Amino acid sequence: MEYSVNKNVTTPWVNLPMTSASPTTSTFLNVTGASNNTELPASGLENFSNEYRAIHGHAAPVICILGIIANCLNIVVLTRKNMVSPTNILLTWLAISDGATMMVYLPYAILNYHIYVKPLSSPLANAHYLMFFAISSVVVHSISIWLTVSLAVFRYVFIRYPRRGAKLCSIHRAKLTVFIVCLVVTLVCIPNSVSYTLKSEDAGMNRTSWFIGVRDDTPGYEFLKTFNLWIQAILVKLLPCFLLAILSLLLIKQMKDAETRRKKLMNKSNSKAEDDSRRQRKTNRTTRMLVVVVVLFVLTETPQGILQLMGGINPNFFTSIYQPLGDLMDTLTLFNNGINFVLYCTMSKHFRDTFIKIFVSDIVKATGMRSENQLMTTRTTRVSEV
């Protein structure tokens, strides 16, 4: 997260990774650059970035709107009384953090991909929102990643220690885990929060363009900038992805072991064995769904962490490789933030049944009652007329 010079402009633009965990937005925040007569030929990645920017500008708002709706549906279903469990508490807060990530990205995408684009100047109000976006998006999406790690840990403990799992992974501990994750992530993101400052430049025609920059005017801020980059790359990207990859393998192994135990139980012809087999099959379905959620996170976040780490080691890599791929990584991350609703509906019968009961059965009943009342009113009116 540092200054980079766009080859088509004379002024430095700031590249803002939307999160350490969330989109890596390569969008330049200073949108007022003037043309440079000595343009250098663009690389293949730069050409791709320029072409994909228009696609991302139209796709991102649509993905955000659909993702916000999907995460709201997740919250409504997962908070029903029949759905309350330690796992679903973590999934609820994951939906909250994912939804919050998309809510702060939506205005950003509209403002900076459709309204304040070259050669228009960026007003102070937009710069203030960019400051809010740069800070809040990192926090909420980092919370999403570590909640996913917590979810994987809870699930592994639950199936690895079936007798003590319910006690070790209680509802109280799930709520405590959410609180600790939110607190620790917020503290870890403080260096990122204090790294930015508002800057301005003359945009011509008596206009001033405002943007945000990374503070590096003193040795302390220069150190903070580098320190923050490593924190974002390692603590908020690579470490959780490494843990999620290990936990995914462990969960898959536990599922295979559980399936072996279930087949042995099926050979026993008694009701207790059949009940245990049914419970084991249900547990495996839930675990399989969570493994898919975890794997999607790993596939989305690991490339960003590696690119960010390489960018911290080599500034040229940051500007030539990491930055042009920012919009693409943003799209993938936003898609991942909104896909969980589809996974829950397709892979969890309990979630699907509860969703149908809330949004289909009750609506059908309400519509039926309305129609019946209207019919009764019509009949009463006819009797009165007679």
Rank of each mutant, 00 (worst) to 15 (best):
F317N: 04
N336C: 13
S320R: 11
T319D: 07
P324S: 03
E301D: 11
S361K: 12
T300D: 14
G311S: 09
I358M: 04
N336P: 05
K349E: 15
L328A: 15
P324Y: 03
D327L: 02
L325K: 05
N316P: 00
G326D: 04
G311I: 02
R352M: 03
H350G: 06
L309C: 12
C345R: 06
M310E: 02
F351Y: 07
F359Q: 00
V295R: 01
H350C: 08
G305Q: 02
V298C: 13
Q308S: 14
V360M: 11
Q308V: 08
V291P: 02
V291Q: 05
F359D: 01
I339W: 07
L307S: 02
Q323E: 10
I356Y: 12
N337R: 09
N340S: 12
L290T: 05
T319P: 00
N337T: 11
L296G: 15
T300M: 08
L299W: 11
G326N: 05
T354R: 10
N336A: 14
V298T: 13
L334M: 15
N337C: 15
K357S: 12
Q304S: 11
F341R: 02
P303I: 04
P315S: 08
N314S: 15
M347Q: 03
Q304R: 12
V291W: 01
V291A: 07
